[in-house]
Nucleic acid binder design. Sequence first.
RNA 1: GGAACGGUGGCUGAGUGGUUGAAAGCGGCACCCUGCUAAGGUGUUAAUCGGGUUUGUUCCGGUUCGAGGGUUCGAAUCCCUCCCGUUCCGCCA
Length: 426
Amino acid sequence: MLDRRFVVEHADQVRKNIANRQMDVPFDRFLELEEERKVLQQQVEEQRAQMNELTKKSGLSVEERREQGQVLKKSLKDLEERLAPLASEAESIFMRIPNLTDDASPVGEEADSETIGYGAAEKQEFDFTAQDHIQLMENAGMLNLEAAAKVSGSGFYYLVGDGALLELAMMRFALDHVMKSGFTPVLTPDLARDKLMEGTGFVPRGNESNTYHLEDMDLNLIATSEITLIGMFADEILDASNFPLKVVGQSHCFRSERAHGSATRGIYRVHQFSKTEMVVVCLPEQAEEIHMEMRKLEQEIFDALGIPYRVLEIATGDLGAAAYRKFDLEAWMPGRQGGSWGEVTSTSNCTDFQARRLKIRYRDEDGKPKYAATLNGTAISICRAMIALVENHQQADGSIKIPEVLQPYMNGKTEIKPLKEKGQAA
RNA sequence: GGAACGGUGGCUGAGUGGUUGAAAGCGGCACCCUGCUAAGGUGUUAAUCGGGUUUGUUCCGGUUCGAGGGUUCGAAUCCCUCCCGUUCCGCCA
């Protein structure tokens, strides 16, 4: 959330920002309510002040106190009852107001996001018909979708043999890479309370929810370890001399994907996947530089894997509520008909928006608590990165070359060969 | 799941109805002492919202002792519900 005072004092800016983000927030209603609320609030506070004064005043008999107190109490209650609905409506609108936006973000919808760079690897020109990741991986005995459908339903998958090893290799490589930049590895809980889900921008329940909620319990399967990583710092006043706090988590991520009806083939959109996620808590003035560093790390990982990609500066209409600025990496996926770009990473600078909601603070030079800045970014997200990897590194015979940087994590193996007969591994 | 005991400021920890926003200690900060270090001395040190203001580290007021309700003229303190923690028991990888 934003600073309440700022919102009122910069109403035009906030209103314009909501429009740029193509969000539907009844902002002017909020301003109205807020004005009424303030008037009432002041009356309530005045009444309370009188009550407090009465309590402290000496030389009154118990009867006198009781008599005067009861009168004050009643009028206070009336005022409070008028205030409550105003305050709660104002609050619910207030919580929906999105973060401000960096001037660098193009104004517009998803399609208006700008390509601002490309990876080091060139798109391959195959002299054969490219296969998609399902064919490649099933033929190599790396993937079993049928068994997963039987066991868990659509949107799940088994990684088998070299598929399983490849995931572990990619995760470990990405982890080692970001650790060189000072990120501390963290394994987090896979479940989190509603409050944390909401605080990090996920909707735990209802139709708009994209996450799994455990029935009758205040627990949810995490949609990303960002939730639990950020949660470590919630409600804390941190020692800024340790900033920036850089952590990298590895976890399974669970998404119900109810909002998307489109049944994307294969493992592009799934209910469960593994992801290595970076999270940083820092001073507001450090955020931009760290955001660039995180983007660079993401690019380095995909460059090292030899996967062609483009870098997008995300348009206002496609920013999450918490993001002030966001970069996505989209990898080239040649197995799709004619090939196309698919999102593989995303890094957001949330400024102090997320921290304000979750009360992540530090002390400034004057010893006053201030809200920290938070950032997050994907180091590697397995299904999608794996699709890009196998499709870009496929050979005419259906074998898959393993990028050099992964070979040490694959027991020195340099390529994955297709099985002679389909389905043999399962 | 059952039982007992707890949840107070950056931390530890007093406080069972009326100047208690909260003793004390630690930590932090400032100053003093000190050849250096260590030790010592004095003072200071919660957050948040609103109003006022010569926009100002100055004043006034509200709220906050896990959360939410209730009792009361008055609640950290009494009652109810919920959440969380510790310990013991049960179950179990």
